[in-house]
Amino acid sequence: MTRLYPRLLPSEVDKAFALLAGLSPHAIELLGLQESGYVFAAAGGDRVSPDELAALRSELTACAREFGYPDTNRIDDLIAFDRTLARWLHRQLDIVPGEASSKAVWGYLGLVVAPHVAAWRFPSREPGYTRERFDGSDLTRNTFSRLWWRAAVLVDEDQPDPYRLVDLLGEEAIDQLMARRRSLAASPGLARAIVREASRRENDLDRSLLRDALQRLLRLSAFMDFEVMDDFELSRTVGEEFDASHQALRGA
């Protein structure tokens, strides 16, 4: 049976985020688990207990510590943290896509369970912390949901390492793909083919090549049904569009 997580009430988001203002990640951790208004989905799974939420908070903190929390946040460490946590969240949360679609679930995780981890991963910059990294308003931006969904889209259980694709691309490249969650990233087979092709071109992959190839694929999706293609056809189609982008940009 899947697990159900607390859903932070919309009226609690402002209050929870305001608590973080001006505090360092460690100071936020010292606040402890704050009392907040939440509900669970009515049915369909087992509710996580307060003890389990406390354990989850400890696990997330321990994971962050491995990569420099709370004192250092070098970019290489943050990328490694993201990759490690993406696998961990997808394997350990035991949350189904329907539940993981709830913005309020991720808002609870980011603002109540582990705001200190989010604050370390996305440090405060003038004028303060970026709200979307904590609340669930954008699932591609929340510190935790972005990683869960990245793993959920790219996981391939037929491979010896199901999460290998999560590690293949840099942060910016993977963000470009996942930002198109409604279109290209909505087809896991296509998303995996894009990551494989992009990583194959690692040496000449830059932001403009990937962006151009994604735009071409997006245009194609208006009249092509990627769902009926097998992996071979998907790889060929994606490869052709990357080739076209490469040619176009080289000639530009």
């Binding site: 402002d14 208004g37 509900v39």
Partner: peptide, 19 residues
């Protein structure tokens, strides 16, 4: 939803509207 175990007042409903 069930309000049991939540921090909500146990009324008939709750209208959550941030300011």
């Amino acid at each position: 939803t069930s309000f049991a175990g939540s921090a909500l007042p146990k009324g008939a409903w709750f209208i959550s509207a941030g300011t």
